[in-house]
């Protein structure tokens, strides 16, 4: 989303650009979101709207299944070496390659990767997607049984020094609440229990969505889950402390979804090294001037946008793509003068 938005903004300044896309399709992770929060619009539709505009302008070249293997300065521009052996010249480079979901196998006690009915949020997203593998029916992986009792465990790979991710990933409370609403709306008799530490639905419309979830009967239990155990029939036993009551609680669920946080994209460190730009202790890029120039780096003409500088909801990524495009346009204009 961020990169598309940046390219389209450059297009408005009549500046030609090339999008280097690692996968076979544009749109990044948002392409896989059946619905986005807080307004439940289709992520796929958001992406296809932008892709249509990218395709219709003659100014944007798109290279799919393509990665950057090297960048060096050559005269007054950068020479970008590509994975297909070719190279291209650019006066400015915008890094907008997003993030990577936390690898839930790293939190062994939840049994992800061992118990088939413990899934991670992106998989739940696919199961809830009307165009997904189950056509939007929530069927659990082990035996295809419709899910009547679901648990969602918040803060998996976020706010934990133990997994080297002490930061809040910002979007998990909201996307999980959105998913809980989808489960509940498609089957009002289904039980959905969210185990959380704090609810951080901080954006416009996010908290209202959270309140709506409670109103339609999504249960929130304050307590971080210590363990999930698979029972012989595939059900999952979840144990936690209800810290508001000060009581240990446990429940048996058909399905457990882990609200995984966001981690830096695996490409971050190699690009940081290639370009000599700074990383924070959290592994994300740091922008220049202590954040006063949010898109700038220590390297002239190299700009940052979106989740590469930390975690953001889609809305902020759209904003960042737009402003990074504008920042790059201003840079190029001044350079020409």
């Amino acid at each position: 989303m961020t990169g598309l938005k940046a390219a389209l903004t450059l297009d408005e300044f009549e500046i030609p650009s090339v999008i280097v896309e690692k996968s076979g399709e544009l749109g990044g992770k948002v392409r896989g979101y059946g619905k986005t929060f807080p307004d439940f619009r289709s992520g796929r539709a958001l992406v296809s709207g932008l892709v249509k505009r990218v395709d219709s302008t003659g100014m944007i070249r798109v290279l799919r299944n393509c990665t950057v293997s090297g960048i060096r300065t050559e005269g007054d521009h950068y020479r970008v070496r590509l994975s297909d052996g070719t190279s291209l010249d650019a006066h400015a480079v915008i890094l907008a390659f997003g993030f990577e979901p936390f690898d839930a196998t790293r939190q062994e006690e939840y049994g992800y990767g061992v118990c088939p009915n413990v899934i991670a949020a992106p998989e739940l997203e696919a199961l809830l997607d009307p165009l997904g593998p189950t056509k939007g029916r929530l069927l659990r992986p082990s035996d295809g049984k419709p899910v009547r009792k679901a648990a969602i465990i918040f803060c998996v790979g976020s706010r934990s020094k133990r997994t080297d991710s002490p930061y809040c990933s910002r979007i998990c409370c909201s996307y999980s609440t959105k998913q809980a609403i989808e489960i509940k709306e498609s089957d009002p008799d289904a039980q959905v229990v969210c185990f959380y530490m704090d609810i951080r639905t901080y954006g416009r419309g996010f908290e209202e969505m959270h309140q709506y979830a409670r109103e339609i009967g999504v249960k929130y239990i304050r307590g971080r889950v210590s363990e999930c155990c698979a029972l012989p029939d595939g059900d999952i036993l979840v144990r936690a402390e209800n810290t508001l009551l000060g009581k240990p609680v446990q429940g048996v669920f058909d399905l457990v979804s882990l609200s995984v946080g966001m981690t830096p994209s695996p490409d971050t460190s190699s690009l940081a090294e290639m370009l000599g730009i700074e990383l924070g202790t959290d592994g994300f890029f740091i922008s220049a001037d202590g954040g006063l120039s949010p898109h700038d780096t220590g390297r002239e003409g190299i700009f940052l946008a979106g989740a590469v500088t930390g975690l953001k909801p889609i809305r902020d990524c759209i904003l960042e793509g737009t402003s990074a495009g504008g920042r790059a346009a201003a840079y190029l204009r001044r350079r020409r003068a």
């Binding site: 803060c155 706010r159 530490m197 704090d198 304050r222 307590g223 971080r224 889950v225 210590s226 363990e227 144990r239 936690a240 402390e241 209800n242 810290t243 240990p248």
Partner: peptide, 14 residues
Amino acid sequence: CHQCGICTEACPHT
């Protein structure tokens, strides 16, 4: 400490 309670569930006394 954020009072998340994960320790209570892990504690043998529970």
